[in-house]
């Protein structure tokens, strides 16, 4: 019995210690930023592997989510004879919620897991410690470009996702189901406010990008340097990122749109 209580206590202490380490790690990475000239090529390289290579999955998912929204929305709204409101419905759901959230989930699966595995393998093969031996700060050289790349790429991906989704919705709603073109865009424009909806969506995706990238690089940096350790760190990245995104999404939505 006491063993179990002790195990529980150890678990709790581990979690708190890990939180503390991740905070200190983040502070270390952010403190290592100011080298815009020599760090820039590294950042571009990471933007390519984190952002550009995530583009295909984001484009395809956005297109299909927009199309499904149009199809479902049309079925429901045509019962009330107001199919014309479909543009408004698609745009608001995508801009406020689905754009940032689904992109963040895809990002965690596609880019976050890759970041964790890469850094974890670097740690397991002792590349990070050999860098330190050579007097190169691995936080600045390896971690910081990856963190910033995730931070920058995520909002860009989310905005592209939203636009493709709206276009996919138009494809199904207007071209296939025959909603009037002018009503689709007109209702959308009168319902969507640039500051309240679009900018708040972008702010959400900035927060998610930061959280996802942080979790991914921290899990890689902190993993147990064995193959089993890397695999469990990769799993943790996806699980923690998804949970953090969904939880933060509720909190952000309550703050941004909850003023009833």
């Amino acid at each position: 019995m006491t063993d179990r209580i002790a195990a529980l206590g150890r678990r709790g202490l581990d979690i708190i210690a890990s939180l503390g380490r991740s905070g200190r790690f983040l502070a270390g990475v952010l403190a290592g930023i100011p080298r815009p000239v020599s760090g820039f090529p590294l950042l571009v390289q990471q933007l390519y592997s984190v952002g550009v290579l995530s583009l295909p999955i984001v484009l395809v998912s956005g297109l299909f989510i927009g199309m499904v929204l149009a199809l479902q929305g049309y079925t429901i709204l045509s019962d009330f004879g107001s199919e014309a409101a479909i543009g408004q419905m698609i745009a608001l759901t995508l801009v406020r919620e689905l754009g940032p959230v689904v992109t963040a989930l895809l990002f965690a699966g596609r880019a976050g897991s890759a970041l964790t595995a890469e850094i974890g393998l670097m740690k397991a093969t002792e590349q990070l410690s050999s860098m330190e031996m050579m007097g190169v700060d691995p936080l600045r050289r390896v971690i910081a470009p990856r963190l910033w790349a995730g931070f920058i790429a995520m909002p860009v991906l989310a905005v592209i996702f939203t636009v493709v989704g709206i276009w996919g919705g138009m494809l199904v709603g207007v071209e296939w189901l025959g909603v009037f073109d002018g009503a689709y865009w007109g209702n959308m424009q009168s319902a969507v406010n640039f500051v309240d909806d679009v900018l708040n969506g972008v702010i959400k995706s900035v927060v998610f990008g930061f959280v996802c990238a942080w979790i991914a690089v921290y899990q890689g940096y902190d993993c147990v340097p064995t193959s089993a350790g890397i695999s469990s760190a990769t799993t943790k990245t996806v699980v923690y990122s998804s949970l953090a995104v969904l939880g933060l999404d509720f909190a952000l939505t309550a703050v941004m749109f909850g003023d009833f």
Partner: peptide
């Protein structure tokens, strides 16, 4: 990629929110 992101923001501003 960055230009595509900017173009997407512009699209959201002009075509979607009618700014």
């Amino acid at each position: 990629f960055m230009i595509a992101g900017l173009a997407a923001v512009l699209f959201l501003a002009l075509q979607v929110s009618g700014l």
